[in-house]
Amino acid sequence: MGNFRTAFNSFAGRHGMGVALFVAIAVAAWVILLIVLPQLSMLDYSFRHNLPASQIGGPDDTYTLENYRYFMFGNDDGLNTLDIGILLRTLIAAVFVTILDVMICYPIAFILAHSASGVSARLMVIGLIIPFWVNEILRAFAFRVLFGATGLINSVGLGMGLWDAPVDFIRADVALYSGLAYAYILLMIFPIYNAVEALDRAQIEAARDMGAPWWRVHWRIVLPIAKPGIASGATMVFMLTSGALAAPQILGGPSSLWFTQVIYQWFNQSSNWQRGSAYAVILLLVCIAFVTLMMRVFKVSVGEIGK
């Protein structure tokens, strides 16, 4: 608290009391009213029964672990393999999409930072940004057009005789994974680019000069520099993929749900907000735990994200 007071005073001395008050109030409102309290409120809600509005606050409105128990064990006492399975599948798929994005984006970020120059680099940056002006929903729609049974890929594949019955890319989740990987490409490229750009070209040339093959140059020189960028990009892509809702709704196969869709169903179809909150808490905690674990493993800090 003392630290905040010192900061406030020095801020007021530098920018004036009015500005200092504005900053203090706005940041406090953001942190407390928009970030902390809503999350706590959701957490609180997740421990409650699904009651009709008239009974809320009444004697039946007690805390319960029922919603979490349901996630683990379902209606009977067997393991709730359906929901747990969906959560695991979501996480694994998110990891897969993240890895896919790293592999797609690392070369292009490197090319952008060190091979392209002048006009071609500017064009590439513009070319990277333009697709992401198009609404997320429309981008998913484009993938449906592309991968549908009568989509271009099937038409071309069949026309060329590569396969003789239309492949159901939707059911096989190919469309979903491509769409998700596509959706978050920018969030992977720019952090890697920012990290790799700091590398002095002379280092690469020196290594090549000493006879290192290209893969060793990348492994020993470029990758260590790119690591914070990759970590930052991977964190964002993983969190956004596992929390994605639109793409799975549009591109997901009929038999495979995303965990966010389960949450959505609790809210919109079953009108059981308490259970939906519990599932949201589970998603949030599992994702945070996973990202924290990965950051430990790769030795990076949250402070580097968003740079």
Partner: peptide
């Protein structure tokens, strides 16, 4: 908040 799944943000907002 950038990293929190949007679904979670939406739910916590309406609940709060």
């Amino acid at each position: 908040p950038i990293l929190i799944p949007g679904v979670v943000l939406g739910i916590s907002t309406i609940v709060f």
